[in-house]
Design a protein around this nucleic acid. Structure first.
Lengths: 224, 224
DNA sequence: CGGGTTCTTGACTATCTTCAACGAAAGTGG
DNA sequence: CCACTTTCGTTGAAGATAGTCAAGAACCCG
């Protein structure tokens, strides 16, 4: 999951795994805290998230970290470059994954249908990342946090009458490293949103969006 | 071209167009200032840059701009998502392009060899963009500018004895919008680098790297 | 319950942006 | 080809946004 321009949302297959003829392995379960792969590992499998949440990260030698993406149901993670992984990937919330052999992506003959779907997933990935650039490069702290909450509530929020509730399984540090901020700034921005009654913080990891439209406005640059 | 982690450079086909059997159209020439496509356009062609420089941009309604990438020789631009372009693309420096039908990417049957090469290009794109995230989200102004110059000098710099000379065809505003900075900050940072004798500014669009190692160090976080 | 981690908040600081002015470069039209 | 205009780049001063450092509160887990 990246922070994309909200209006561009399309109903892509977020809750079904891809069709496949032969090259689909059985679904696997992974526990929170375990790693799927590390940067530099050879790529054998791609994984489509069925349930749970993954975290893709990159590290700089001096410890600075960038969370590249969160893997939510529907997302495909593990796209290789030169057969090698270029991020670490670990499990934030117990997850079930549908593994696909990377050879299916690299060789169209074995399973043409699945090959096409994986290719489309890769292309969507590129497009989503382009949106995310805009956010990292050009948005303010409050716009970033508002965008993040907006996207997340659209994707995994549960309707609660007029409001939308959502779980934030990741830490404030994860959000900060995803948005290019510090934990303190994320925390302060959330407090600001709470004080202006746009969100309510049920508990640290549960947020209720009280005014979705206001949140969306903020994410596009309206001043708080 | 993205700002990638410098040590990861690999000798990918930057100066040859891909092999192809049938679906390769003739090379086309495009003039500086012309647009290849706009955001929202249907995608019919991918383009591999043979010579010249392209610029891929995205705009926010309020005018804020993000330069997504510069297209240098070897780069492939125009990857679609849902058959639609998600950036604008225009020509910075007169260019020659090798167009490939997007159907070749989307359908592996017509030209399997070319299909594979385009797919690999898309996967490299994803990996490069991941690196670029780190830069946008976690690097300081001087690290960003140093990274940018470092990558560019590696890719298109001309050896000049111990030094490397390179052309910056893009404006300061382009560099700023690429790195998530303002033109003023880019300008000031370049002046700083000049005053500390790491680069020389031959003229506004020509820069000589006097101390490549120092520049690389800066890009990784060494203080000026 | 206790110890460690995570989150929040405050005070202060640094970095980058904004606003403004000026000079250099590039484009335009006579 | 030169004068004029406009755009682009650099620099300075002031201000704002986000970062740093520090302390206490809340939360989590055994």
């Amino acid at each position: 999951m990246y922070v994309t321009i909200p209006t561009e949302f399309s109903a892509i297959s977020q809750n079904n795994t891809f069709t496949s003829l032969t090259t689909k392995s059985t679904e696997t379960r992974v526990k929170a805290g375990s790693y799927l792969y590390y940067e530099g590992d050879d790529v054998d499998w791609l994984y489509q998230v069925t349930s749970g949440v993954l975290r893709l990260t990159r590290l700089l030698e001096d410890g600075r970290r960038q969370v590249i993406a969160f893997g939510y149901p529907g997302d495909v993670v593990g796209f290789p470059s030169d057969h090698v992984h270029h991020t670490d990937c670990d499990v934030l919330v117990d997850a079930t994954l549908q593994p696909y052999r990377v050879s299916v992506l690299e060789n169209g003959d074995t399973d043409p249908l699945l090959h096409k779907e994986l290719l489309q997933a890769a292309l969507r990935e590129i497009s989503s990342m382009q949106d995310h650039f805009m956010m990292l490069g050009r948005k303010s702290a409050s716009e970033k946090v508002a965008s993040f909450l907006s996207v997340l509530s659209d994707r995994v929020g549960q309707n609660l009458g007029d409001y939308k509730q959502m779980n934030l399984p990741m830490s404030r540090a994860d959000i900060a490293d995803f948005l290019g901020l510090t934990t303190e700034t994320v925390s302060r921005t959330l407090t600001q949103l709470r004080k202006s009654k746009i969100i309510a913080i049920e508990n640290v990891h549960t947020i209720i969006v009280l005014r979705p439209t206001a949140l969306l406005g903020l994410s596009a640059g309206n001043t708080l």
